Computed example of a mutant assay.
Amino acid sequence: MNLQQAKHLAHKVLANEANPEEKAALQQYIQDNALLPGLEEQLFPLQELMSAPDSALPAGMEERILTPLTGGNAPAIPARRPVLRQLLRISAAAAVVLIVCLGAYRLLHTDRTPETTLQTLVTPNGSQGNITLADGTQIRLNGGTTLRYPSSFTGKTREIYLDGEAFFEVSEDSSHPFIIHAPAFTTTVLGTSFNIKSAAGQQLSEVAVATGKVRVAATVAGTADSVAYLTPGEVVYYHPNDPAGIHKGSIAFNMIGAWKDRRFHYDQTPLHSILHDMESAYGLHFRVVNPAVLSCTFSATFNNMTATEILQTLALMSQVKFQIKDSLTEVSGQSCN
């Protein structure tokens, strides 16, 4: 999500027109960009609200904002008392910023773990990581992955943040849904095992379920078909440039989280996705000489092979060439189109 999209969502929240997924997406954007100077002012232009004439403020906005703050008893705003209205406008506008930034439930209708309580676990490329959360949930992290999680879970939900790829075995607790926020998806489960692959800047994201049932919602506002329910053996894919939204399909059980054993299955998969897997699993660094080769697609299965063996096989299957130069692997060749 970019700033313009976030501004659009902020406007919908204030107008009481945002759905739960849009509110969650806005909250995630605010948390991910908490250090961006002037973010609150850009999303909620206080000067506009404070300097606008009385009639310019949307009807009922003061009451809608003040009601959550007063427990449902918003004060009446006399039409002939501009000073009081101005003070209320300033207070209301400031309250909006405070409520959104702190993730207040009543305005955004979502419980969030305070940013200051989150621990961070990072697995570098070429390695894997394991962690057991406070509720007993076990997570296996692929290389190049960042996980943010609380030391203990409080409130009505169990929420964590993922950037990269991980396999989850979630402890069952029907009264406290487990929610994973990732760049492309928000995934909600009660107790199940599944794999999520979603990294910032990554072109293709996916969620695949091994056991149980999960709810997956695309976090990009306006995405068509943005919610899907998955059962064992099902997978959803998302590409940011695909206006159709997320696509649902099937997947072999033995390929869900297969990266843990360095097994990879590709079916007409573009080279850029394969290289990303090689970076995460083997710690390789690539320099692409001809970007056109990244669109080349491959169908192959690699079972516990070395990185060199995989690259050699890809080269034999196409016009793509790989050459190791110092710490970089140079990718060159001709387009496959």
Rank of each mutant, 00 (worst) to 15 (best):
K321Y: 10
G249Q: 00
E22W: 04
Q47Y: 15
M50W: 13
P82C: 09
P232M: 02
A210S: 15
R64Q: 11
N290G: 10
P75I: 02
Q268P: 07
N125M: 14
R287N: 15
V189N: 05
S299Q: 02
F298T: 01
F194Q: 03
T313N: 01
I160H: 01
A56G: 10
C296M: 00
A79H: 03
A25Y: 09
G245M: 06
N73V: 09
G144H: 05
L328I: 05
S174D: 15
L230D: 01
P75T: 02
A24R: 08
L271Q: 00
G191L: 07
I77H: 01
L107A: 11
P150V: 05
G144T: 08
T329W: 15
Q28Y: 06
E165F: 10
F302W: 05
V170H: 04
I65N: 02
G283H: 09
P82G: 05
I65F: 06
A224P: 03
L133W: 03
Y238E: 02
G129E: 04
S332E: 04
D54H: 13
A208I: 11
A6Q: 06
F153T: 11
L230E: 01
T70L: 07
S171C: 06
E165P: 05
I179Q: 03
S175I: 14
T297I: 01
K23R: 12
A93I: 08
L284W: 11
A221Y: 03
G38W: 02
A258Y: 11
S327L: 12
R148P: 07
M1V: 13
I251D: 00
Q202M: 15
L98N: 15
F178C: 04
G60Q: 00
N2K: 06
L162C: 09
H109K: 09
L84G: 09
E115Q: 04
P150I: 07
L118Y: 02
Q42P: 12
I179W: 05
T269A: 12
L162I: 08
N73A: 01
Q42M: 11
A228N: 08
A52R: 02
S174W: 12
I160A: 03
A307D: 05
G143Q: 11
K325Q: 14
T116Y: 13
H176K: 13
R215W: 02
P114I: 03
S51R: 10
G191I: 03
D173T: 05
K260Y: 11
S273N: 07
C336I: 01
T186H: 14
F153H: 07
D225M: 01
N130P: 10
D267F: 05
I160F: 00
E169I: 12
N33W: 12
T231C: 00
E309Q: 13
V289D: 14
E172S: 14
A34P: 11
L133C: 02
R106G: 12
S273C: 06
I99N: 15
M278D: 04
V220W: 02
A6F: 08
